[in-house]
Design a protein around this nucleic acid. Structure first.
Length: 306
DNA sequence: GCATGTCAAGTTGTG
DNA sequence: CACAACTTGACATGC
């Protein structure tokens, strides 16, 4: 089993910078590109540092934050790497990251955020989503990430039709995106049961988020959903991907959706132990939570009781 | 220095 | 009907 860290660090001296379109728009174009160049160079360098840290900590996967190159697809301030003064150097670092990830056997992934909605009935939304996905596809290609994981999006009163729209837009994606695209069950709309047959039909792997499944159950047990989702990965000859998190305020009081600092070992499905899979740890304490969970599970090889 | 408000984008459920 | 929650900091601004 391979444990993954999501995007950021709590203690390790690795950081990522960003900027806003508003700030960029106050600058002349050449000053914009200079500023963006510095930020992108910093972020690429720190992604390299992130992989070294992750390796040292015995973590086997890393999710790369979406705004690695901030505002790259923005309609007013968007840019290409070649436009940046240090574009060549940045490209070189991306290549070195690819080599390092392979050498350390660190699995890399992307998780575009809520604005990427392929099932939307609004063509503008879908257009923007495709642009963002192509950007992440370019990044994934550069650093050798094998997963770009998205949610199925909104329902608009009819899940079947929404999924049909998602289906219809897939041919508009590049091969780079298409071969990495995965779907994840969410905590308000789409359950594993909603997505399994769709994923199977289209050979799209299903990322199984057990926390979302517990927030939005569908009659399948954790064990069943894990196994069925696993089939969608085996069908394409790839290692299964799952997500784990714990509710900030416990399961009883109020909203269980917000994530806690650490994973309660009792939330870790016993049926996952010993399986060949990648488990992204979604916890606010970041690498500390991953390290703690790995140690905790090692101490109890025979399972926390569900 | 430190606290605070802002930041591209979508959708849903809640108040 | 407006607004916060998803998730989360970094940065600019203002004291």
């Amino acid at each position: 089993m391979r444990f993954g860290l999501c995007c950021l660090f709590k203690k390790e001296p690795v950081s990522f910078r960003t900027t806003t379109a508003k700030r960029l728009l106050s600058l002349q174009r050449d000053r914009q590109l200079q500023n963006l160049s510095e930020i992108c160079f910093h972020n690429a360098s720190n992604l390299y540092l992130a992989l070294e840290a992750v390796h040292r900590l015995n973590i086997g996967a890393f999710r790369i934050m979406s705004p690695l190159f901030p505002r790259m697809t923005h309609p007013d301030v968007g840019y290409r790497l070649e436009d940046l003064p240090d574009g060549k150097k940045i490209r070189q670092i991306m290549h070195e990251i690819r080599i390092l990830a392979r050498q350390y056997d660190i699995r890399l992934s992307f998780h575009p955020d809520q604005f990427v909605v392929l099932s939307s009935p609004h063509s503008q939304v879908v257009e923007n989503s495709i642009r963002e996905l192509e950007y992440q596809g370019m990044l994934a290609e550069a650093v050798g990430a094998d997963v770009i994981n998205i949610h199925a999006g909104g329902v608009y009163g009819d899940k079947f039709q929404a999924l049909q729209r998602l289906n219809d837009v897939l041919p508009d994606l590049s091969v780079a995106v298409r071969k990495r695209l995965t779907l994840e069950n969410d905590d308000v709309s789409y359950t594993p049961r909603d997505l399994l047959s769709f994923c199977e039909r289209l050979s799209i792997p299903l990322v199984y988020d057990v926390h979302h499944h517990r927030c939005l159950p569908d009659g399948l047990s954790v064990d069943q959903a894990t196994t069925l989702a696993g089939k969608s990965w085996r069908a394409v000859g790839r290692e299964q991907y799952c997500h784990i998190s714990s509710p900030r305020n416990g399961w009883q009081s109020g909203d269980p959706k917000p994530h806690a600092d650490y994973i309660d070992p009792a939330d870790f499905p016993a049926c996952w132990l010993g399986r060949e899979m990648t488990v992204d740890v979604e916890a606010k304490a970041k690498e500390l939570a991953v390290i703690w969970l790995m140690a905790e599970l090692k101490g109890r090889p025979d399972a926390p009781v569900p």
